[in-house]
Amino acid sequence: MSRRTEPIHPLYFAAAFGTGGLLSFMVLFNGTLAAYGSLFFASWVPHLTGTVAAMLFLLVLRPKRARVTRPPVWVYLGGVSGAITVMLTSATLNSGLALSGTIALGLAGQMMFSLFADLRGLFGLPQRTPVRRDYLALVLIIAGSLILIFLGSGS
């Protein structure tokens, strides 16, 4: 049971916040594709161009491998989970949930499973027990997000 006493490193903090900003651009780009083509196409294209881009990044950056031993096969299947996400959301988008309901419930599912994974140390990642201020931050950020999702757009 490790209880966090250190503040989040400013680099991690800024990187995580900036990564969320990238997501907005992905939504904008992929959403624009979906407006012209099928939802499959809107997911297929970024996976295709992403695979090419990642290959180029790997060739140029040549990152060091952390371990020589090969990891188990299941760790290569994260992409399947991501691809299924796209298919599920394309189904719920067209239901009564619409975009706002899809995003709101998705946030809930993401946070619940993230907390569970941290508490249990799932998939060989470090176990960590969220402290009270983590839960307070969760309430504030999710409440702010719900306000933006349900009340922020449209006048």
Partner: peptide, 23 residues
């Protein structure tokens, strides 16, 4: 919709585990 959110987190965890072994 909730499952979709769970899968977002699951995907990040599995990829994070792969990054621990590779980059």
């Amino acid at each position: 919709a909730i499952l979709a959110g769970v899968l977002v987190s699951l995907s990040r965890q599995i990829n994070g585990r792969l990054a621990l072994s590779t980059s």
